[in-house]
Design a protein around this nucleic acid. Structure first.
Length: 231
DNA sequence: GCACCGATGTGCT
DNA sequence: GCACATCGGTGCC
């Protein structure tokens, strides 16, 4: 009998895991996301995030995330208060905040903490574990070798959204609700103790020293180079 | 492998 | 205007 561990408030790292079913049938609960983003972020590593469309499902195993806080975090979109663009960040936990950036890319975050306390975790990179064919169709055909193309399918926040077909239409999607176009579940298999590194966030200029980026140590699907390790 | 740069839309200082 | 939670190409090591 599988333990309903996805419903626990705490993360599961360091615990002995029960045998999981082959399909990620269980969803992470809203209580899981109802915590500070810096606590949620490392617990998301190894989890399975997916999108459903008429063409099928694409699922990734998350390998790199970044925590963004609210008014205390100058790098957060919520820092200057609520606008139409960032409204979802000010809503309840467990919803997807999708924004458009650099004129051509989307990024997806999962909102943490209760309504009125804006914080979120940016999903920066993953390993495609289901629907690689569909993900490849959505990504431009490059000249790279096949192994690099597999690695690059969802390596980086813009690529991850492209592979999963995520755009602004997904803004506000409840990832904790069964049947949503976006969903997230616990790791598919007991992975043992994951080796997690942390360091400064990427691509920001303000509060660039805070170590709020988390990634799986040594994983080749992580987006940027793993220069800085602080634990 | 690494550095640089242009493409592009949106939301602000 | 300009800064941006980016990416893919080119050129060089």
């Amino acid at each position: 009998m599988p333990v309903r561990w996805a419903g626990r408030r705490q993360g599961w790292r360091g615990r002995t895991l029960p045998t999981m079913p082959p399909e990620p049938a269980e969803l992470l609960t809203r209580a899981f996301f109802d915590r500070p983003s810096a606590e949620v972020a490392p617990d998301l590593l190894g989890c399975v995030f997916w999108s459903d469309s008429p063409k099928g499902r694409v699922a990734v195993r998350l390998v790199e995330v970044e925590a963004y806080e609210g008014e205390s975090d100058p790098a957060s979109h919520a820092f200057r208060g609520q606008t139409q663009r960032n409204a979802v960040m000010f809503g309840p936990a467990g919803h997807a905040y999708v924004y458009f950036t650099y004129g051509m890319h989307f990024c997806v975050n999962l909102v943490c903490e209760p309504a009125g306390q804006p914080s979120a975790v940016l999903l920066r990179a993953g390993q495609v574990i289901e629907g690689a064919g569909l993900a490849g169709e959505r990504r431009p055909v490059g000249r790279s070798p096949a192994s690099a193309r597999e690695r690059d399918l969802a390596r980086g926040p813009g690529r991850l959204c492209q592979a999963l077909g995520i755009d602004r239409a997904f803004d506000g999607t409840d990832v904790c609700a069964p049947g949503s176009a976006l969903g997230i579940g616990p790791p598919e298999t007991a992975e043992g103790a994951l080796r997690i590194s942390r360091g400064p966030r990427i691509g920001i200029t303000r509060a660039a020293d805070r170590p709020l980026r988390f990634w799986l140590t040594g994983d080749r699907h992580v987006s940027a180079h793993q220069r800085v390790t602080a634990g």
